[in-house]
């Protein structure tokens, strides 16, 4: 199932840089987190270090991918060809000691090619279910928007409920179960727009852009030094499935001030009333924003969420869940513009 092909490393630096965490300058002992986040911090650093062996720059992208993994969410990476979307996803999967599979979505792909199918066994005179490549802990779906809606709908159940139902029988996915999907922008040739129901199931949609000149020079230097052949070999697994489950449990226990819950609800609710939006975000978006903010706060060494976390994640959580009106699209506005407007309309709880 795993089809690893050599690719050119082409890191990205599109995402906004992470705000620097507030480091203690005085006596930090009185204000240490009540939850011990040292294990989480250690594992996160280990994953960052492994990614850093191959990926140049892209700290923000790596941080957001880590956030999604800790928040038990799926990620959609969008970018033009050649910006290392697939490589980044493969490297991240490789840092986790969990089963990995890769699916290359094509226009003629069928749902049974993804989920699996029942095969007749003449000797036993019965049908046997042969699991498809979706049965893995980290599933990389490359070029996800090159398959038609019929195939996409096969992913609805498995992405939300972590199970599939085949011939009346339920098959649970292994834990953890994360879908990392890549896609080209819909303007590219041969691509489809993903169904709204499927987009809603992705925790984040991360835009991957071109690297800066300095980063591209670093990529060239690394490649010239003989590093470009099989970059995956230098990356090793540093977090097991059990450790990841423990880290996720810590994230779930993060403190969230009640006014922050209201803040999240108001942000998402505003997308349903905004004049520039044809489709607002669902309550699943609120949950995604909450879970993502909790994971990001943990990665920043806090056991509580701040409005900063929510604001930082809001574009990544909302941009694929909202649809602009045709008028706004013709004006050249993007979902990120609308999210920015909404963030400016809601008072930060303090």
């Amino acid at each position: 199932m795993e089809n690893l092909q050599p690719e050119q490393p082409a890191p990205d630096a599109t995402s906004a840089p992470l705000p620097a965490p507030l480091e203690a300058t005085g006596d930090a002992g009185s204000f240490a987190p009540r939850t011990d986040l040292s294990a989480l911090s250690r594992h996160a650093d280990a994953i960052r270090a492994e990614l850093g062996k191959v990926i140049v720059g892209q700290q923000a992208l790596g941080e957001l991918l880590l956030t999604a993994i800790l928040a038990d969410g799926h990620v959609l990476l969008e970018g033009v060809p050649g910006v290392a979307k697939t490589l980044t996803a493969k490297l991240l999967a490789r840092t986790l000691a969990v089963p990995f599979s890769r699916l290359q979505f094509t226009p003629d792909l069928m749902p049974s090619d993804v989920l699996g199918t029942a095969v007749f066994r003449p000797a036993q005179a019965d049908f046997e279910f042969r699991p498809g490549p979706i049965f893995a802990s980290v599933v990389l779906i490359d070029e996800i928007n090159r398959a038609p809606a019929k195939t996409q709908s096969a992913l609805f159940e498995v992405m939300e409920e972590r199970q599939i139902t085949q011939d009346g029988t339920r098959y649970a996915m292994p834990a953890p179960f994360v879908v990392l999907a890549t896609q080209n922008p819909v303007e590219q040739e041969g691509t489809y727009r993903l169904p709204e129901a499927q987009l809603d199931r992705f925790l984040f949609k991360l835009n991957v852009g071109y690297p800066t000149v300095e980063e591209e020079i670093a990529i060239l230097q690394g490649h010239h030094a003989g590093f470009g052949g099989t970059p995956l070999d230098v990356v090793k697994a540093v977090v097991s499935a059990a450790e990841l489950a423990e880290l996720r449990e810590q994230v779930r226990r993060q403190h969230v001030e009640p006014r922050l819950l209201e803040y999240i609800a108001r942000l998402v609710g505003q997308t349903r009333m905004h004049k520039g939006l044809y489709l607002g975000a669902s309550p699943r978006a609120s949950l995604a924003l909450l879970n993502g903010a909790k994971a990001l706060a943990a990665l920043r060494g806090r056991d509580f969420v701040t409005p900063e976390d929510v604001q930082y994640l809001a574009p990544h959580v909302l941009r694929h869940r909202i649809q602009l009106t045709p008028e706004r699209e013709m004006e050249g506005q993007t979902p990120d513009d609308i999210v920015k407007q909404i963030l400016q309309q809601i008072e930060v709880p303090r």
């Binding site: 507030l22 203690a24 969420v305 701040t306």
Partner: peptide, 26 residues
């Protein structure tokens, strides 16, 4: 201001209703 903000966020967003007098003094 950075240190003041850090302490405020720790206490307020961290829901430290059990803040002791010595912590508050700090």
């Amino acid at each position: 201001f950075r240190e003041l903000t850090r302490q405020f966020e720790f206490v307020w967003y961290g829901e430290h209703d059990d803040l002791t007098a010595s912590q508050y003094q700090q």
